[in-house]
C-alpha cells in the first residue's frame, strides 16, 4: 500500500495543482504498483524521470505482456502528440499546407471519415489523433487493457503509420517548431525506436532522419 502523505489519492493531479507540483510524487518500482493501469503508470513515470532517455522508457519489463506494452505506449504517444498538434496549430494553416504531405511524392488521405478524404495538414493531424483515440478507446477493438486481443494488434500498425505522417510533415514543413518540441520531449526519436523495435512500420516509411542526429 502506498503511504499517504496527504489525504486523498496520491498519484493524482487534483484540481488546483500548480504547474510546479504537476505529477510530483515519488516513484515506485513496477512490482509495487498494484493498480490495474500499472503499465501506463509505469511508462508515464519513466518518461517523467527522463524524457530523453528513450531506451529506458521503451525497455519492456519481462512480466509485461508485449501486446499490452505496445498498446500502452501507443496510447502515450497519442497523448503526447497533442502537444505537437497544439504548436502546429499556430503555424500550419490550411491556406499554407492545404494537403498532408511530407516530401513531394506522397499526399495522404485522411482515413478518419466515413469515406477517406483529402484534408489539410492541420485537419489531418487533428482528425488522425482523434481517430486514434477513438480506436484505442473503443470497446470493440480493445475491450480490456489488461489483455489485448490478437486480432487488434494489426490495427496498431495502421495507427502508427498515420501518426508518423504528422511527424514527417512537421519535420519537413515546420522545422523549427519540430526541433523545439523534439528537444523537450524526444518524441519522434522515441516513436521511431518504438516502431522499429516492434516492426510496426516498414523502414522505408521512416523518412525523418532522427536517428542520425
Amino acid at each position: 500500500m502506498a503511504t499517504t502523505t496527504r489525504p486523498g489519492a496520491i498519484r493524482r493531479n487534483g484540481p488546483g495543482t500548480k504547474r510546479s507540483e504537476w505529477s510530483n510524487w515519488e516513484t515506485l518500482s513496477y512490482e509495487d504498483m498494484d493498480s490495474s493501469l500499472n503499465v501506463q503508470q509505469y511508462i508515464q513515470q519513466t518518461i517523467k524521470q527522463n524524457p530523453l532517455d528513450v531506451d529506458t522508457i521503451l525497455n519492456q519489463l519481462p512480466d509485461i505482456d508485449e501486446g499490452v506494452w505496445k498498446y500502452e505506449h501507443l496510447r502515450q504517444f497519442v497523448l503526447q502528440l497533442n502537444g505537437l498538434a497544439l504548436l502546429l496549430q499556430e503555424e500550419c494553416y490550411p491556406s499554407a499546407c492545404a494537403q498532408m504531405t511530407a516530401t513531394e511524392q506522397w499526399i495522404f488521405l485522411c482515413a478518419a471519415h466515413k469515406n477517406p478524404k483529402e484534408c489539410s495538414a492541420i485537419d489531418y493531424t487533428r482528425h488522425t489523433l482523434d481517430g486514434a483515440a477513438i480506436l484505442l478507446n473503443s470497446s470493440k477493438y480493445f475491450p480490456s487493457r489488461i489483455n489485448i486481443k490478437e486480432s487488434s494488434i494489426s490495427k496498431l500498425g495502421s495507427v502508427c503509420r498515420r501518426i508518423y505522417r504528422i511527424f514527417s510533415h512537421a519535420y519537413f514543413h515546420h522545422k523549427p517548431l519540430f526541433e523545439k518540441f523534439e528537444a523537450e520531449t524526444a518524441l519522434c526519436k522515441r516513436f521511431t525506436v518504438y516502431v522499429t523495435r516492434y516492426n510496426l512500420i516498414a523502414k522505408e516509411h521512416l523518412i525523418v532522419p532522427i536517428l542520425q542526429q
Partner: peptide, 12 residues
C-alpha cells in the same frame, strides 16, 4: 505488403 498497404492511403 505493409508498404503497399500504406500506399493505399495516397491521395493520388
Amino acid at each position: 505488403l505493409n508498404i503497399l498497404c500504406a500506399r493505399f492511403d495516397s491521395a493520388s
